[in-house]
């Protein structure tokens, strides 16, 4: 474990090395809110600088300079000196780091089929949940994570093209709007960071993954269930089998880099379908849907 003074010095000086699943991020920032969030969420993923000579992504979060910073302070994301996005309000500096890191991974990790999906694991078997924004994926993921499932990923599934297995990318689960209080009430012990209001996704707060998910981040998991959740307010919670061909098309449609990896991506997606029970989840009540997913995995946790 790295002491807080070292964390601060690392962020301000040569950069703090963070193991994020299969990637090493070297982060530099003088922003207090970034420092606080990194200390809160990534304290168990810090690498000693001396034995980490290579990083995959060199990220800097900095306040925009200039006179405007007096009345409208802003934060900028830099990948190795280049800023791929517009700045955001300084209050959103930490979500900007998470979103920027998503961008880095999506641009570079073509040794995986990358899918916009949550991934959880129980007893060595992985549940993959692709979902449109608003499908309730993050809420389900947070609740599963806090009730015995291992978190591999909140919204960024990495399917290895080499092994056909899912690789963990454990990062804070991004909770939006009403889900923040819902998870707080159900799991008072959960560690949830400060909320950022009025982002492009509404109010956002992050849930820290349990230690067990971090400790096992280098363990891959074979796919077992492919579930497409859809939020149906006032409806009845149910799991319904899905045609494999349709599941394959939907899976490919949720991929960020299918067109880049081409044939290898198709093979990997087809293998995943082959090994998975493919289901649609109509989701109205969190407890009812959790029950359905736990039953899939062989009983309540």
């Amino acid at each position: 474990m790295i002491a807080h003074e070292d964390l601060r010095a690392g962020l301000r000086d040569a950069g703090l090395a963070i193991q994020v699943g299969p990637f090493v991020v070297r982060l530099r920032s003088r922003l207090d809110r970034v420092e606080r969030s990194v200390a809160l969420f990534y304290d168990r993923q810090l690498l000693p600088a001396a034995s980490t000579p290579f990083a995959d992504f060199h990220v800097t979060l900095a306040a925009s300079p200039g006179l405007r910073s007096v009345w409208r302070p802003q934060a900028r994301f830099f990948l190795d000196g280049r800023s791929p996005f517009r700045p955001l309000p300084l209050a959103h500096a930490y979500p900007l780091f998470e979103w920027g890191l998503n961008w880095c991974i999506a641009q570079h990790a073509h040794d995986f089929l990358m899918i916009h999906a949550a991934v959880l694991e129980r007893d060595g078997r992985a549940l993959v949940m692709p979902g449109e924004p608003g499908a309730g994926k993050s809420t389900l993921t947070a609740a599963l994570t806090l009730s015995g499932w291992r978190l591999l990923s909140d919204e960024f599934a990495l399917l290895s093209l080499a092994t056909g297995k899912l690789v963990a990318l454990p990062r804070p689960v991004s909770l939006k709007n009403a889900a923040i209080d819902l998870i707080r009430e159900r799991h008072p012990q959960a560690i949830i960071g400060p909320a950022s209001h009025d982002t492009s996704k509404g109010t956002v707060a992050h849930l820290k993954p349990p230690d067990s998910s971090i400790e096992r981040m280098h363990q891959q998991a074979g796919p077992a269930w492919l579930v497409f959740p859809r939020f149906a307010a006032g409806g009845r919670d149910r799991l319904q089998p899905l045609e494999r061909a349709e599941a394959l098309l939907k899976l490919i449609g949720s991929s960020f880099n299918y067109s880049v990896v081409g044939g290898a991506g198709f093979e990997a997606a087809a293998d995943l379908i082959e090994q998975s029970a493919c289901l649609n989840l109509e989701y109205a009540d969190l407890d009812a849907s959790l029950g359905l997913l736990n039953d899939l995995a062989g009983g309540a946790a």
Binding site: V24, F54, D56, H108, D111, S259, V260, V261, G262
Partner: peptide
């Protein structure tokens, strides 16, 4: 080439081939 940098070269090659 050590695996960590090799992966970046490999990925760029995948992109170039595409």
């Amino acid at each position: 080439v050590p695996p960590a940098p090799r992966r970046h070269l490999h990925v760029a090659r995948v992109l170039a081939d595409r």
